[in-house]
Design a protein around this nucleic acid. Structure first.
Lengths: 348, 348
DNA sequence: TGTGTATGATTAATCCGTTAATCGCACTTC
DNA sequence: GAAGTGCGATTAACGGATTAATCATACACA
């Protein structure tokens, strides 16, 4: 059907080796004179020759394709924008380097497993955050180079590379910001979830550390709110007149939902309650008030992941087995000085 | 390096044909007894044999991979969620049918062109809306089956299939809704853009038709607002006391931005101005007020596109060369009765 | 006995580029 | 004149699976 390299060779009166060399310039033991090269190019053009990449991939044992796997493909559009940024960031680097990106949807776990070893992918970027044993096993025994985003740090020696942000440091920025505004009683909020994720865990730990460090007082159990998202827990909590003047949410969406609940419960934001989110995307601009949030350098992280992966594919051993990026902090409109600042605790 | 089918065959004392038949069950002129089949499976398992998909793809001339191309990959996260839904919808069907999805980023136009003919993709879903000549040419002369979403209808015979929503009908729903609320002077808003897109064009036409049909009066030039998005055109327009009580925006984001501008200009929404968007996604829930919008059945459209594409790949001629899906209408909080209803024009 | 049919299994060509190995030849150098 | 060097070009094996064609054997039936 399609024109093959053999037909081009025949039409040009040369060997397939010559055509291959001229058109793709790889073999270094093949030499072609300039005159012939030009002729070959001409013939190929006139025959409208399109090289078959599959055959080439088979021979050179490389496809220039990288897989990317998410735990939540299928609910991307309704989920946090974080994933989309990650997706774009990784894609950008890959495309610039003439790699393609293939989505690995985890319809079945076995599908993923066999995808990784079937020769169609040169490497994988792993964007699943859950720490289920199967995923971990897969990461640690992946037959091709793999970089894991925000995944749990390795406990056993592995060839995988891990990229994440400094979750603890990010939460510390949030606490610092609130303390500077005059807040002292600060809560940390997350939704009840089936599977724990390492980033949520890290942020919770960061909260405890930061509270101790910045206020001098240990956070207590009542400072950690674990809510089932569908229930109107907010109203009950608020009605009980909690001592908190600010809430740090473990994620952007959590913060957004909190804003909605607080607003519909009649609170005036940020006066009645300061709210901080984690992950600073376009979404933070669309809430009312606009959401103050910790910002992961997602594009840098994605670029580091992709760049490292490509280096690994090229056979270079990774410089580091894990990369951790510092967070920044984006102040918007959802935080302000507490209604009754230091007075409550320290009347002047 | 990796275990090949030949090694399995040797270890099991059978031919490669037998192994191929047992493990992948394709050849129908090859027969293997149950006993041997079991034995082969056992050996393959013990050797941890992983079939090389690239070799298979070369032989069967099929990769079970479908490409998807967007005009705006790289600004997905900040763009309309419409694209994400499309992406997910197409992906869902593909994955269920054991196809993979590869992103085609249009770094260079030539890259795309050669990607389509290099044997690595069985088909393409085209999600670019721009109608530049090169894209059109590509769609019409694509070497593999192609389905184009919301692309301009073909003017010449082509094997491509086109899927879109009934843009005109969607706008008509918006106009009907507003008219039923009592609005008579309704404007249509879109941003000034470099490249025209057929869907925007269709919605504008739909606006004219619907206004004529639903109010009995032709829309005039001043009813069509083409704003350069970065300029504060809204304030000027509003200050000039326009006769309009409602604005239909050509897209979701346009509507969202309009809300922001109107709110910051001091208007009370929806009382002072009713606003309707096009595309009803999660985004419409996050605006204040929540955005009333025309809703494309994106998942159905995506599913139709993917399903049709797979059928084409399997050699079946498409049932139709184009599919048009009706829109629905999601009433939220950004529309209400006009401040001075019919009174202005028709004092009782 | 001879013919026909079904089952079980193998051989070898094929898909299409890539590339190590080889060859011829012209030219240089000692 | 023998040996060495470089360029230009080809041959043929190779990557790993699929499958049409072929073969062998067993059994049924007239």
């Amino acid at each position: 059907m399609a024109v093959t390299i053999r037909e081009v060779a025949k039409a040009a009166g040369v060997s397939t080796a010559a055509v291959s060399k001229v058109l793709h310039g790889r073999g270094n033991s093949v030499r072609v004179s300039d005159v012939r090269a030009a002729h070959i190019r001409e013939i190929a053009e006139s025959l409208n020759y399109r090289p078959n990449a599959v055959a080439r991939n088979l021979r050179i044992r490389r496809t220039h394709a990288v897989g990317i796997i998410f735990e939540n493909f299928g609910s991307f559009a309704n989920g946090p924008l974080y994933y989309m940024h990650l997706f774009e960031g990784v894609g950008g680097v890959l495309f610039k380097n003439h790699y393609r990106m293939t989505i690995l949807a985890e319809i079945a776990h076995d599908d993923v497993l066999s995808s990784l070893g079937d020769g169609q992918l040169d490497g994988v970027v792993w964007c699943k955050l859950t720490r289920d044993p199967e995923s971990l096993a897969l990461i640690h025994s992946c037959p091709i180079p793999i970089v894991a985003m925000n995944a749990p740090a390795p406990t056993v020696p592995t060839e995988a590379v891990f990229v994440s942000c400094d979750n603890e440091g990010g939460i510390d920025l949030a606490v610092q910001h609130l303390v500077a505004l005059g807040h002292r009683r600060i809560a940390f909020l997350y939704e009840r979830q089936e599977l724990d994720t390492p980033d949520r865990q890290a942020r919770l730990e960061g909260f405890h550390d930061a509270m101790k460090a910045r206020t001098g007082v240990d956070a207590t159990a009542e400072d950690v709110l674990e809510w089932d998202w569908l229930l109107p827990e907010f109203s009950g909590w608020w009605a009980a007149k909690p001592p908190h003047t600010a809430i740090i949410c473990w994620s952007e969406r959590t913060a957004g939902n909190l804003i909605l609940q607080a607003t519909s419960a009649g609170l005036s934001l940020p006066g009645d309650l300061s709210i901080v989110g984690f992950d600073s995307t376009q979404y933070c601009e669309t809430t009312t008030p606009r959401l103050t949030a910790v910002c992961q350098p997602i594009y840098e992280m994605a670029a580091a992941a992709a760049t490292t992966l490509l280096a690994m594919i090229d056979g270079m051993p990774p410089i580091q087995s894990s990369f951790t990026f510092p967070c920044t902090f984006d102040v918007r409109d959802s935080t302000t000085t507490p209604r009754s600042p230091l007075n409550a605790e320290n009347p002047s």
